[in-house]
């Protein structure tokens, strides 16, 4: 079973990963975006870390709810509402249990990713976060490690894709040949989950 501390560790690992990889995310966002994905997520996850320390939530759902609200209030851009919605919706699915099973986590994340797809209107293959999240969540039934690896492979697979959503879509054919920064940060989020699971 996974307790509240597991979800706090997940968010802490995500914050550490974003801090470590911020420059790379911004670099990836430069040719097909506006060169700020790393700095925006860093601002958001720094705020998440501070919020979770200031007022440690009592349940897994409360951890993800607070993290999601904090991202919406601090990140801006498309990433703020999309990542905020991912965590809020995932948290909401977990109910008010003090401990949840891995199957609960899988189902909740699946609902969270569905909410992201609905909000952003994107589908698999559009060169977005979903290209890492969808294969990642699909592999959660195997293990957290498998999910992280599938998400990483999904992010790498965005390189030859033509962007159809967000700012990269303005480039048309010129978006081909670059890895999507949103898919890359989504892979980091699932790698952080695997790290929390140990």
């Amino acid at each position: 079973m996974r307790d509240t501390d597991f979800f706090r560790r997940w968010m802490a690992a995500a914050a550490a990963a974003v801090e470590r990889e911020a420059d790379r995310l911004t670099e990836l966002d430069s040719p097909i975006g506006d060169a700020d994905h790393g700095s925006n997520l860093l601002r958001g996850f720094t705020a998440v870390r501070a919020a979770l320390e200031a007022e440690p939530p009592a349940t897994p759902a409360a951890v993800l709810g607070l993290a999601g609200r904090t991202l919406i209030s601090t990140v801006g851009g498309a990433s703020g509402p999309l990542y905020g919605t991912l965590l809020r919706r995932t948290g909401k699915e977990l109910g008010d249990a003090a401990e949840v099973s891995d199957e609960d986590v899988r189902k909740a994340l699946d609902a969270g990713v569905t909410a992201v797809a609905a909000l952003g209107g994107a589908a698999a293959g559009d060169k977005t976060m979903l290209d890492a999240l969808l294969p990642g969540v699909a592999a959660l039934g195997t293990s957290y490690r498998a999910a992280a690896e599938a998400a990483e492979a999904g992010a790498a697979a965005t390189v030859p894709m033509l962007a159809r959503k967000g700012r990269a879509s303005y480039l048309g054919e010129r978006s081909i040949g670059h890895q999507d920064p949103g898919a890359t940060s989504s892979a980091l989020l699932l790698a952080a989950l695997a790290e929390a699971a140990g």
Binding site: D34, D36, I72, S73, G76, G77
Partner: peptide, 11 residues
């Protein structure tokens, strides 16, 4: 006003 080239937040 949001951050540079980044939309503001709903708040």
């Amino acid at each position: 006003p949001g951050e540079v080239f980044t939309s503001p937040v709903p708040d």
